[in-house]
Design a binder for these strands. Structure first.
Lengths: 181, 181
DNA sequence: GTCTATAACGAGATAGAC
DNA sequence: GTCTATCTCGTTATAGAC
C-alpha cells in the first residue's frame, strides 16, 4: 500500500500529477488495473492517500531540522527547507499546494496534516515578532510567490529563491515596525 | 469567430478552463460539434485563440488607464488593475498565467502579447527606480503571490490584495536603497 | 459552412471466476 | 487478493452528404 503510493509518485513525476492513470500505475506495481481497487476505493482515494503522504514527507523533513534559537533565523531555515522540498518534485508541489485535479478535494483527515504544517510556520513567525495576521499573510504570500515563480520558470535554478532570506528579513523588519510604532 | 471565443469564455467560467468540451461549446453557439472545425483546427487552436484574446483584453484594459505622472503611483495603479482583471475571472487567470492544459503551449504569436504586457510592467518599474533585474523579479513575484493567494482562497474578497500598495511601496523603497547605497 | 454518422481511443469502474 | 472480461461513458477528430 505504501509502496503503491511510492510508485504513484514516480509516475506523477514522469507523467504529471494529472497524467496518472490506474492502468499505468497497475503496470508500475506489477498488477492489473482492477486489482488496485483492493487498495483504493476510487482514483480520488489514491490522490487523497498521496496528498496525505506528501504532507507527511514535508512534516518529517521539518522534524529533521534543528532550528536555530534566533526566531528570525528559524523562519528562514523553515522557509528555505520548504522551498527545497517543493522544488525537488513538481508533481508533489502541485498536489499539495495547488488544485490540479478537478473534482478532487482532500479528505478532512488528510487536510489536517496540511494545516499542521501551516500552523508550524505561523508559530515561528509569531516568535519572530510577526503577530498581525495581515503580516503573516504577506510573508506566506511572498514566499509562495518566489517559490512558484521558481518552480514554473526555472526549477533547479535559484533565480527567485536566492532572494528568500533577504525578503524575509525585509518583511519581518517591516512587520515589527508596524506593530511597535 | 470572435463570438465563439466569447462563448468559450462563458463556458470556461462555469465549467473551468479544462472543463470545456467542443460539444458543449457547439451547443452554446448553436452548432453541432464538428462544425467548430471550420473555425479551429483543433481544440488547442481554440485555447490559443482564447489565450491571445485574454491577453488582448488585458492590454486593452491597461490602455484605458491614465497613469499618474508619479512612476510609483503608476506602478501601483498598474498592479491594482492587473489584480482586478485577474480576480474577475478565474478561468482567464488560469489560462493566461498558469499551465492548466497539459499539452497546450501558446503559439509564438499569442505569446508575444503576453510578453508585451510583461514589458510594460517592467518599464514602469524601471521608471520607479527598480532597475536591478533581481528586484524586478521580486516585485513581480510578490504581486503574483498576493494575487494567487487571493484567487485561490477568497476570490471576491481583498484579504490579500489590500496589502498590494503597501508592499509595492516597501519593495520599491528597498530596491532604491539597494541601488543607491 | 453546416450537418449526420461514426471512427478511434482512453478513461474509471464493476462482475464474477479462481 | 488477483485475475479476465466487460461495461459505460465521454472525448477529439474525420468522412462525406447537402
Amino acid at each position: 500500500m505504501a509502496s503503491i503510493v511510492a510508485r504513484a509518485w514516480e509516475l506523477a513525476r514522469s507523467e504529471g500529477i494529472g497524467g496518472i492513470t490506474l492502468r499505468a500505475l497497475a503496470r508500475q506495481v506489477g498488477m492489473r488495473q482492477p486489482s488496485l481497487y483492493e487498495y483504493f476505493d476510487s482514483k480520488n482515494a489514491l490522490y487523497d492517500a498521496m496528498f496525505a503522504d506528501g504532507n507527511r514527507q514535508l512534516l518529517e523533513r521539518l522534524d529533521g531540522l534543528d532550528l536555530p534559537e534566533d526566531p528570525r533565523q528559524a523562519v528562514k531555515l523553515f522557509m528555505r527547507t520548504l522551498a527545497e522540498f517543493v522544488l525537488e518534485d513538481g508533481a508533489r508541489h502541485q498536489l499539495l499546494f495547488q488544485r490540479p485535479i478537478p473534482g478532487f478535494e482532500p479528505s478532512p483527515a488528510s487536510f489536517a496534516h496540511a494545516e499542521e504544517f501551516l500552523a508550524r510556520g505561523v508559530d515561528l513567525l509569531h516568535a519572530a515578532g510577526v503577530r498581525d495576521p495581515g503580516d503573516v499573510d504577506c510573508v506566506v504570500a511572498v514566499v509562495a510567490g518566489l517559490v512558484d515563480a521558481q518552480a514554473s520558470n526555472d526549477p533547479g535554478g535559484d533565480r527567485w529563491t536566492h532572494h528568500l532570506d533577504r525578503l524575509i528579513d525585509l518583511h519581518i523588519d517591516h512587520a515589527q515596525q508596524r506593530s511597535t510604532p
